[in-house]
Design a protein around this nucleic acid. Sequence first.
DNA 1: GTCTATATCAAGATAGAC
DNA 2: GTCTATCTTGATATAGAC
Lengths: 208, 208
Amino acid sequence: MTARASIRQQVQRVREEAIVGAVNRLLSLKGYDAMTVDEVAAEAGMAKASLYKLFPSKEDLAAAAMVAALDRALAFVDGLNEQASRAPVATLAIAQLKAVVRWAMQTQLEGEMPSLPSQNSSLSASLQLNDQYMDRLVALSTKLGTWVADAQARGQLNSAFPAELVLYTLFARACDPVVTMLKSSGQYTHEQKLDWVTASTFEGLAAR
Amino acid sequence: MTARASIRQQVQRVREEAIVGAVNRLLSLKGYDAMTVDEVAAEAGMAKASLYKLFPSKEDLAAAAMVAALDRALAFVDGLNEQASRAPVATLAIAQLKAVVRWAMQTQLEGEMPSLPSQNSSLSASLQLNDQYMDRLVALSTKLGTWVADAQARGQLNSAFPAELVLYTLFARACDPVVTMLKSSGQYTHEQKLDWVTASTFEGLAAR
DNA sequence: GTCTATATCAAGATAGAC
DNA sequence: GTCTATCTTGATATAGAC
């Protein structure tokens, strides 16, 4: 009896993951407004009505995809922390921040970073009321904030900037449209693009 | 007879400017998708049908606002060039680039910089077919490109970056969402925000 | 030339059969 | 629990009166 229920739950979980994966790709490819629920259903391989049983609205779909993306980011950050705790020499906080930005940009290049209208949409309002989303956003901001404070204290990051500005900039660069623009003019290697955009974020455009 | 016609043309021109101004503000405030033609008509003080006589589609409205914005940018750039030709010492190319980015960010802060979904929308496709828009975009890119090449040749800009990347970054920073994020957390002065975001663009986040 | 009223359509959401 | 078929809404676009 419980086994039957468990199997059914697993099936549902697989279906949910298929939906969230489809939303993730479509959000990355076309953005929230251009994405239609019909497309999501088609890509996930089920009828729209079945999808609406699991996610009661389009906003819930987007929220689920964002939560999953934040979970991946948190997992990456935790992985860096583990590496650092095992490393013989303490890893530089700024190196960890660079690694996170680079990972985010790479994810974006691979079409797996959902990007939302960062401001002014009705979607942002509903996301801010979503506890699952907000919890993860706060958790990620806190972890990155620790590294920022550390890097500023050690003189690795410019201390003239408020930590808030640095955090906002890191989040913004994680979805930097420059990455996509470079994608279309495809005369450079993947690695070059990541190197350049990461460098321009931390070292600036001006010569040093 | 011609006077009558001229007056009528002037009236139309005023109405057109009211419309483009309204579109400009709404695009800056809410973005293209959230902006409705009803709002534009209301803000411009006329009925929707009258508006559609002048601009046959919503995309035409957005294009007109973008053309006007690019004209303002070109005028600003030309102003800098005139100043430089009158100055006793030649102005540094990098200083001019900084001035342009700062001007764009300030315009954005004031709610007068129309921002469009930079990618993947059906709008971008139609804009790329719009000659008025493309001419101005090419003109602006060419002028900025001259400064970029000059600044790289003089060792003011990092020559490791392809000029293309620098240009993309300048355009992207002109609509940097960080500016808006800082706007909401309003504990800083206008000037501070502009200084910081300009500095992070050219000098980077890392300490020098 | 401008406005009121309406057509048209796309997309989010749901009812009901199986 | 899933799918087909349908409802509903909101927004673009237009017809026709004045």
